[in-house]
Lab assay of single mutants.
Amino acid sequence: TTKIQIRLADGSRLIQRFNSTHRILDVRNFIVQSRPEFAALDFILVTSFPNKELTDESLTLLEADILNTVLLQQ
């Protein structure tokens, strides 16, 4: 498993454990389930350093190389 910290656009944080085989789409779905107010918003996930937009949501967390990292919601 891996721990992902997500810094949300409103300044708050979410921390969740995922399997390395989960997909970026699963992280997006977790955000929307945790904070339904973001469901209607068009947002992207970005790595904190170096900044990289995670546009291919079909990638696993392992394939995207974002295990144990911080993601930013923009």
Rank of each mutant, 00 (worst) to 15 (best):
S34F: 06
D42F: 04
I24P: 02
V27K: 07
L14M: 07
P50D: 15
I15T: 11
V32H: 02
F18N: 08
T1C: 15
A9I: 15
L45T: 07
L61G: 05
N68W: 01
D26V: 01
E57R: 02
L67N: 14
T55H: 13
Q16V: 05
Q73Y: 08
G11W: 07
L59I: 13
E37A: 01
T60D: 01
I44Q: 04
L61D: 08
T21V: 02
Q73T: 08
R28W: 01
I24L: 05
T47G: 07
P50N: 15
T69H: 05
L54V: 11
T2Q: 11
E37V: 01
N51K: 14
D10Q: 03
R35T: 05
F18G: 06
E57W: 06
L14E: 02
V32Y: 06
A64Y: 06
S34G: 04
R13K: 09
R7V: 14
S20L: 15
T55S: 09
R17G: 08
A40E: 14
K52A: 00
L62R: 13
V32W: 02
L45H: 08
I66Y: 08
R13S: 11
R23M: 09
R23P: 06
S20R: 09
D10R: 05
T69K: 10
V70R: 14
D42Y: 01
S58M: 07
E37K: 03
A39R: 11
D65N: 11
L41F: 12
I24D: 02
Q16C: 12
S58C: 13
L8G: 03
L41W: 10
T47N: 14
L61R: 07
P36S: 02
T2I: 14
D56W: 05
A9D: 00
D10I: 01
I15E: 15
E57G: 00
L61Y: 12
I31D: 08
T69F: 00
F38M: 15
D10F: 15
I15N: 08
T21K: 09
K52W: 00
D10C: 00
I66D: 06
L45C: 09
D10P: 07
F30H: 08
S34W: 07
T55M: 08
I44C: 11
T47E: 04
T60Y: 07
Q33T: 07
S48G: 12
L61Q: 00
N68C: 04
R28Y: 00
V27Y: 07
K3W: 06
Q16Y: 09
I15W: 06
R28T: 01
V46M: 12
R35F: 13
L41G: 10
V32L: 11
R28H: 04
D26S: 05
L67D: 15
V27T: 04
F30L: 02
K52M: 05
L62E: 15
V27N: 06
F43Q: 00
A9F: 13
D56G: 02
L67T: 15
R17W: 08
R7H: 05
L61I: 08
R23D: 04
A9L: 15
L54Q: 11
D26G: 03
A39Y: 10
K3D: 10
T60P: 03
P50E: 15
K3E: 14
F30Y: 09
T21H: 13
T60C: 10
L72S: 01
T55L: 09
L61W: 01
G11H: 12
S58H: 12
V32G: 06
N51Q: 15
S34E: 11
L41N: 09
I15H: 08
L25Y: 13
S12G: 01
D65E: 08
D65L: 10
E63P: 01
T55W: 10
T60R: 06
L61M: 05
I31Y: 07
N29V: 01
N51D: 11
S12D: 02
I24S: 01
L67A: 11
T60V: 04
Q73G: 02
F18L: 00
V27M: 02
L72D: 11
T1S: 10
L14C: 02
Q33H: 06
A39L: 05
P36E: 05
A39G: 08
D65H: 04
R23A: 05
R23G: 06
I15F: 11
N68S: 10
L72K: 07
P36A: 03
L14S: 05
R35C: 01
F38V: 05
T1E: 15
T1A: 01
Q74F: 04
V46T: 06
L71I: 14
L59Q: 11
L41K: 12
T55R: 12
F49C: 13
N51E: 14
T21E: 10
N68P: 10
S20M: 12
T55N: 11
I31T: 02
I66T: 09
R35A: 01
D26P: 05
R35V: 01
N29H: 03
R7P: 02
I31H: 04
H22L: 12
S12A: 06
R28S: 01
D65P: 07
R23K: 15
D26N: 03
R17L: 06
T1R: 05
V27W: 07
A9W: 11
Q16G: 15
I4T: 03
T47V: 01
L62C: 13
L41V: 14
D10K: 02
E53S: 06
L45Q: 02
V32A: 06
T60Q: 02
N51W: 13
T2N: 10
I44V: 13
S20H: 11
F38C: 09
R17P: 06
A64I: 07
H22T: 12
P50H: 12
A39I: 11
L67M: 15
E53K: 13
A39F: 05
V46S: 12
D26F: 02
D26E: 03
R28L: 01
S34I: 11
L41T: 14
E57L: 02
L54S: 04
Q16N: 08
L71Y: 14
T69V: 08
